[in-house]
Design a protein around this nucleic acid. Structure first.
Lengths: 130, 130
DNA sequence: TAGGTGTATTAAGTGATATAATACACTCAT
DNA sequence: ATGAGTGTATTATATCACTTAATACACCTA
């Protein structure tokens, strides 16, 4: 029963984006949504590479980005672990969201939409809260 | 006095994105915001390349994408013109906006934010209507 | 000590992007 | 008709990010 994280990290890859970015994003999302718990141990570089059928170097790059985000902590000889600090997770989550919002609004502004316009469009998507 | 469009298309390029994409986006934005009027004549491929200090082939690629969007019409031997059809412009604009919204919401969902959350964040940006 | 960790290095291949140099077909003013 | 200015096509070359591959090393733990 060591494969708990295995299932969560068994996702599909496509070629429209760099592979390391997809791995990176998938882990960030999983942590942000709470699918992966704090302090959990990630699969080893080689193991995840095997699962996803990609090169260990590519997985390592994703792991390095995650550590730079402050989302993971690596212990040499032991493995890579999701941080146990809820503050860090929240900070990363909000900073990612903030960046997404900025970029999105800039893009919409480039098309001539005001913030008010944007609110309208999103409201029609939402329906209710969920 | 033929350089009316020249000024509008004299923008800055960086290396974070493909050059042809930047040209493409800049023209789309300019048309969407009405900075470039319907039916206006674009600079020639060689002329714009000269202005932006890039290769004519790169400009041509941008022009081809614009035509695939339906935003421009090219007349062999005459030049490239912004479409005179307001419907087409509106259609392209809305389809671009639609795509942006979808992508943005998917990204935010990946971080665990509901549409309601997103509305909150954007409202705090807006202030008033403009 | 043995096997599993993360990490570093070197080499090679691939594809998108960009440049360069030419050439061709078309249109318009002269 | 001619010539200059259009868009377009082709071929070659260069660069860069990404990916894979094959090793090797340092660290931890049982």
């Amino acid at each position: 029963m060591k494969e708990e994280l295995g299932g969560k990290l068994q996702f599909e890859l496509d070629l429209s984006q760099p592979l390391y970015e997809q791995v990176w994003n998938h882990v960030r999302s999983s942590v942000a949504k709470g699918v992966i718990g704090l302090g959990e141990k990630m699969p080893s570089v080689r193991e995840l590479a095997q699962m996803l059928q990609i090169n260990p170097n590519t997985v390592m790059r994703a792991y390095q980005e995650l550590e730079r985000d402050g989302l993971t902590e690596t212990r040499r000889g032991q493995g890579t672990f999701i941080t146990s600090d809820p503050i860090k997770v929240a900070t990363v989550r909000e900073s990612l969201a903030q960046a997404a919002v900025e970029e999105f609004l800039a893009r919409m502004d480039g098309l001539g939409f005001t913030v008010r316009d944007v609110m309208q469009m999103i409201r029609s998507k939402g329906g209710n809260g969920e």
